[in-house]
Simulated scan of single mutants.
Amino acid sequence: MGNKDIGQFSNESSRCTFFNSDSDDYRCMVILTVKRATATFSLIGCIVMLFVIWLLRRYHSLAQKMILCLTVAAFFDSIAYVMGEEYPEGRLCIFQAWWLMYFDWSALAWVCLITLNLYLNLVKEMRTDHFEILYHGLAWGVPLLMSCLPLFGGFYGLAGAWCWITDSHVAWRFGIWYFPLFTLIFLMICCYARIIYVANKRMQSWFGTFNPERERRKVTLAEEIRPLKWYPSVYLLVSLFPLINRLHNAWYPRDPVFSLTLLHVLSAPLHGLANAFVFGLDRDTWGQLSLSGIQLALRSRLCDRTQIREYHPGPVRYMPADEAAFTDSDDDTNVLFFSPDMALKDRAP
């Protein structure tokens, strides 16, 4: 996101000012094309992920709801990258910059909270369902604060292929995004290292006679950890090249490197697509996305209106055989209830 600082491309001057060349310079055209393509792929990835969540009803447990919220944040973040190519200084540019800051922070917050929730469930063995409102407050409230600070300070403006914090406020770029981003990524990696260690130790410590519930829990632990552990890696990969490019630009502001700039715009908008790939690592999800599985799920979502309700049986009184007063005409052999007091001849064969 603070990855948003590639060279300025001005329509008013018909110049690609980042490379100090004409607007039809192939380098500028490549940067804008790559930025548009990666943002579009990321947006499509989010849409597909939201469709799969709806189709397979993956929104009931707290962990599933958190992944849904992460997808929503990444979806709106991708929209910001495809809003347009460049803007003149003004309200629209400031709005895009605020939008990017808010939803980048929101997506990062949800990744951190998913990690925290798994840590509390597995390592601390705590139930966290009652934290749902708190999670929403943090994931939507903290980004609002972080995105409004540059807004109130007047630090938003043109910052290359998209609007963000301007070139004259480099300290704000690192202080409000890069430093917190990589600090949180480091903490998440530490949390997942602890989670994996505890999970492996706990699974190896389970011994004795066969217990189906215990075996099911072992499989569940492995399935829960497998996809979620990749979310910090996603943010590390898509943020590494933007950080390198921004560091280079901070030291050599008038000497940009085309390859670094290209890698910058290639990776910065990819949060949504990367999250979709991580979501797809769930084997159970892939198992249900076969052609027949999709057809059954669509029928269930669109056609099946059957309602399953809880059955409440009435009181039942068991009678000894000598009180039942059966006659020879009672030829029904379907015994619905069994009592030890029933005579053998009265039971079903």
Rank of each mutant, 00 (worst) to 15 (best):
L289Y: 04
Y311A: 14
S329K: 10
S290P: 06
F279Q: 02
L298G: 02
E323R: 12
A297K: 04
L281N: 01
A297S: 10
G293V: 00
A321E: 01
P320R: 15
A276Y: 01
T285P: 00
R305I: 05
L302T: 04
V278H: 00
S290Y: 06
L291K: 14
R299F: 10
P313E: 13
L289V: 03
R309D: 11
Y311H: 14
Y318Q: 15
N334G: 05
I294E: 02
F277C: 02
E323L: 06
L289Q: 02
N275T: 09
W286M: 11
P320W: 13
N275G: 07
S292P: 06
T327V: 09
L336K: 11
A321H: 01
F277Q: 00
D330R: 12
W286N: 12
C303V: 11
E310G: 10
F277D: 00
F279K: 01
R317K: 15
T285N: 05
D282R: 11
S292I: 07
S292M: 07
D284G: 09
D328C: 06
R299M: 08
H312L: 10
V335H: 13
Q295V: 05
T327K: 07
D331R: 11
G293S: 03
L298Y: 02
G280T: 04
P315N: 00
S292K: 14
Y311P: 03
R305T: 09
S292F: 07
F326S: 06
A276D: 00
P313D: 06
V316K: 12
S292D: 14
W286F: 04
P315S: 03
L298W: 09
T285Y: 08
F326Y: 13
R299V: 03
I308Q: 07
T333G: 09
T285V: 15
G287E: 02
E310P: 06
R283M: 03
R317S: 10
A324N: 14
M319P: 01
A325F: 13
P313Q: 10
V278A: 04
F279T: 01
F277H: 00
R301K: 14
E323N: 07
A276Q: 01
D284N: 15
N275S: 08
G314Q: 11
A276I: 02
Q288M: 05
T333A: 11
E310I: 13
P320K: 12
R305W: 07
E310R: 14
L281D: 01
D332F: 09
L336G: 01
L289I: 02
Q288D: 08
P320N: 14
T306I: 13
A321S: 15
E323V: 03
R317M: 11
D328A: 13
F326P: 06
A325C: 15
A321G: 06
R317L: 12
Q288L: 08
Q307R: 14
D282W: 04
A321K: 01
L302V: 08
D304H: 04
V335P: 07
G293H: 03
R301D: 08
T306L: 14
A321P: 00
C303H: 10
A324V: 09
L298F: 07
F277A: 00
L281G: 02
V278I: 06
R305Q: 04
R299S: 07
Q307F: 10
P320Q: 14
Y318E: 14
R309E: 15
G280I: 01
S300P: 02
D332R: 12
R301V: 07
Q295P: 00
C303R: 09
Q295A: 13
